[in-house]
Simulated assay, not measured.
Amino acid sequence: MEVLKSRLLIRPRDAEASTAFYRDTLGLAVEREFPGGTVFFLGHGSLEVSGRGETGASPDLVLWLQVRDLAATLADLKAKGLEPVRDARREPWGLDEAWIADPDGTRIVLVEVPEGHPIRTDTR
């Protein structure tokens, strides 16, 4: 199988609230819009918010979003009224992580790769 592009699809209970959350609260760039949905840019992938879900979040689905500065990202989100589900801390595997959730309760892990960590490739 040759994968050319990837996209995660979320079927929210309230599409308007979820679209506003990803666009306005998180500030994700809109990759494209179409009748009934919005696709957001997620670095090397995409997140599509479309359709209508019935069950809400699953604890088995977690979005992992790497950010450049976790403290600044959390401060910005808190200024917008979003309280983390779990504040930032260094995990045993060496990454700094905080948890937030979208309007349906989908957990989103915000990750900063600290200087000196073996997976860090951006030296800024």
Score class of each variant (00 low, 15 high):
1 M>P: 10
1 M>N: 03
2 E>I: 15
2 E>D: 13
3 V>F: 14
3 V>D: 04
3 V>A: 14
4 L>I: 07
5 K>I: 05
7 R>S: 14
7 R>G: 08
8 L>M: 12
11 R>I: 02
14 D>Q: 02
14 D>V: 11
17 A>L: 04
18 S>H: 02
20 A>L: 00
21 F>A: 05
21 F>W: 11
23 R>W: 05
23 R>L: 03
24 D>H: 05
26 L>S: 06
27 G>N: 09
28 L>H: 00
29 A>R: 14
30 V>D: 05
34 F>A: 10
34 F>Y: 14
35 P>A: 07
36 G>H: 06
39 V>H: 01
40 F>V: 07
40 F>K: 06
40 F>G: 02
41 F>S: 14
42 L>H: 01
45 G>V: 10
45 G>A: 15
48 E>K: 04
49 V>T: 05
50 S>Y: 03
50 S>Q: 07
51 G>S: 11
51 G>F: 10
51 G>R: 09
54 E>C: 08
54 E>R: 14
56 G>K: 03
57 A>H: 09
57 A>D: 04
57 A>G: 02
58 S>F: 05
58 S>H: 04
59 P>D: 14
61 L>G: 04
61 L>T: 15
62 V>W: 08
64 W>M: 12
68 R>M: 12
68 R>N: 12
69 D>Y: 01
69 D>P: 06
70 L>W: 08
70 L>C: 05
72 A>S: 14
74 L>H: 07
74 L>T: 07
76 D>S: 09
77 L>Q: 11
78 K>L: 00
78 K>G: 03
79 A>N: 11
82 L>Q: 02
83 E>T: 12
88 A>R: 09
90 R>K: 12
91 E>H: 08
93 W>I: 01
95 L>Q: 10
100 I>D: 01
107 R>L: 13
110 L>Y: 08
111 V>M: 12
113 V>F: 04
113 V>L: 06
113 V>N: 01
113 V>Y: 05
116 G>I: 02
116 G>F: 04
118 P>Y: 10
120 R>S: 05
120 R>P: 03
123 T>M: 14
